[in-house]
Design a protein around this nucleic acid. Structure first.
Length: 478
RNA sequence: CGGGACGUGGCGCAGUUUGGUAGCGCGCAGCGUUCGGGACGCUGAGGUCGCGGGUUCAAAUCCCGCCGUCCCGACCA
């Protein structure tokens, strides 16, 4: 496979690597994908880390149905401005006509808030802190494996609170959970910020986002957390009797992260040889390659099998080290290239020459460096090397982001940054959606985020020259 | 839904202009030589040429209709 350079052909590189590394493939149904075992293992690792943190912040998991009565959507359309999802209507199932048409949920607010109306009566019932792991269907005209598909897996949290302050704190708290998983687990640095009205989730009062930078200079929205105000409570008639004896609407939040994170992971770390997986999410952390040439292959193989048993007994960050003995009937050179394509963090080569000298060769995927270790010390070194790779990938991605972030003070400068291969362009904005739209129309760049709290940029708007009211970060987005 | 390309073994393609026995590379199977950075030789399996109709002695090739896929826009996490 010829790996294109990032700047020229990154999406092609991406699709090709996803396919060859055997993570996912297009399904027969347009726009849907099959997630293959290694791709799913990466998702499971992200999911497990996310789920732990969601539970640690006091939330419990529930499940709401995927198919909901069509009439519920009508209710929501009446009350929530801009909410007009196109949905799949199901009239038959299991060979029978349904008594009333169902729709595939576009988002779950509808069924959840209809349910919450029956769960809430008093301030004593609040807060409701619920999360669900499920799949969701949205018609995407131009699918890209993991990044944009018709069906995807996600987590969505839906909470109801007594006060605005509490709901807003929840919104920010869950955004920080997303930041933690992205940075600490996936080694993918993200910015936390606030969306402009144009980019906001319909029905939300405020949408917060984490934005990551991919290696082709495009931004990826990797998770969102919404403060919904009283909008959904009003739409579904959810009220509670407050401490003051009066009837109130609860303040709501919702937040979600998806299998898109797997796509972000691939594009944040990948290089021209393929994937580079952070050890914490790598389905295989250490690959052992026996080099069997000539005589004495049996001895080499026996030695590698012993090493496999030793390494699989190691514990790294609370879990057994995931090790693979690559006993495929292929030449070593093929295996080296293939294991690199799959992004396996560490590779250990053992051949006749090593065996004679009681050493092994250990190779890091992140920087390609090789070192010789004594056969007896290799096991002891592996946890420290996994730590090093985990942190190096983060540092490298952070350095990349810093290099690809520019301060701009004029529209020309903004245009130049976007045209010159992308990255983030940071500058003053007057707050007028018209200026935002102008930039989008002329450069395709959008405001990815504003600071969590409005910040006086102390400079005129990059677009129109009127006084700036906020500091905006522009980029081309996936 | 607008603009553009393309449908030929599992994958990638040639062949279509000018109709005449369906080919190449990769992959796959067997055997042998190899094995420290994507090996090589020999043998072999695998295709109603997207679907339907028409023209013709003869259609992957020409004509008509349909279906599907991909790329660029709009939409989106």
């Amino acid at each position: 496979m010829a790996l294109p350079s990032f700047s020229e052909d990154f999406p092609a590189w991406y699709q090709e690597v996803v396919r060859q590394a055997d993570l996912a493939e297009n399904s027969l149904a347009r726009g849907t994908m099959v997630i293959k075992p290694d791709g799913f293992a990466i998702w499971e690792a992200i999911q497990a880390a996310m789920d732990r943190r969601i539970k640690a912040t006091g939330h419990r998991n529930v499940y709401f149905p995927m198919f909901i009565p069509a009439r519920l959507l009508e209710k929501e359309k009446e009350h929530v401005e801009g909410f007009a999802p196109e949905v799949a209507v199901v009239t038959h199932a299991g060979g029978e006509e349904l008594g009333e048409p169902l729709v595939v949920r576009p988002t779950s607010e509808t069924i959840i808030w209809d349910t919450y109306s029956r769960w809430v009566q008093s301030y004593r019932d609040l807060p409701l802190l619920y999360n669900q792991w499920c799949n969701i269907v949205r018609w995407e005209l131009r699918p890209r494996l993991f990044l944009r598909t018709t069906e995807f897996l996600w987590q969505e949290g839906h909470t109801a609170h007594e006060t605005q302050e509490e709901a807003w704190a929840e919104t920010k708290q869950m955004l920080d959970v997303y930041r933690q998983v992205s940075e600490d687990v996936m080694a993918m640095p993200v910015h936390m910020g606030r969306k402009t009205a144009a980019e906001r989730f319909p029905g939300a009062v405020e949408t917060l986002t984490i934005e990551a930078l991919m290696r082709d200079g495009k931004a990826l929205q990797s998770g969102t957390s919404h403060y919904l105000g009283e909008n959904f409570a009003r739409a579904y008639g959810v009220t509670f009797l407050g401490r003051d004896g009066e009837e109130h609407f609860p303040h709501a939040t919702s937040w979600g992260s998806t299998t898109r994170l797997v796509g972000g992971l691939i594009m944040a770390h990948g290089d021209q040889k393929g994937l580079r997986l952070p050890p914490l999410v790598a389905p295989t952390q250490v690959a052992l390659v026996p080099i069997l040439g000539g005589d004495g292959g049996d001895d080499v193989f026996r030695s590698v099998a012993e090493l496999r048993d030793e390494v699989s007994g190691l514990v790294w960050r609370g879990e057994p080290v995931r090790v693979l003995l690559d006993d495929r009937e292929e030449r070593p050179g093929f295996k080296f290239a293939d294991l690199e394509l799959r992004g396996i963090p560490l590779r250990v080569d053992v051949g006749r020459r090593d065996l004679d000298r009681q050493v092994v060769t250990i190779v890091r995927r992140d920087d390609g460096s090789k070192q010789e270790l004594g056969r007896g010390e290799v096991g002891g070194r592996i946890p420290a090397l996994l730590d090093l790779i985990q942190s190096s990938l983060f540092d490298e991605a952070l350095a990349f982001r810093t290099e690809h972030t520019s301060q701009v003070s004029t529209f020309d400068e903004l245009r130049e940054v976007i045209a010159a291969g992308g990255g983030f362009a940071v500058g003053a904005w007057c707050g007028d959606p018209a200026c935002e739209a102008t930039v989008k129309a002329e450069t395709k760049a959008t405001i990815r985020f504003l600071p969590l709290e409005p910040e006086d940029p102390g400079a005129p708007c990059v677009v129109c020259g009127r006084p700036g009211v906020d500091r905006a970060t522009w980029a081309i987005a996936y």
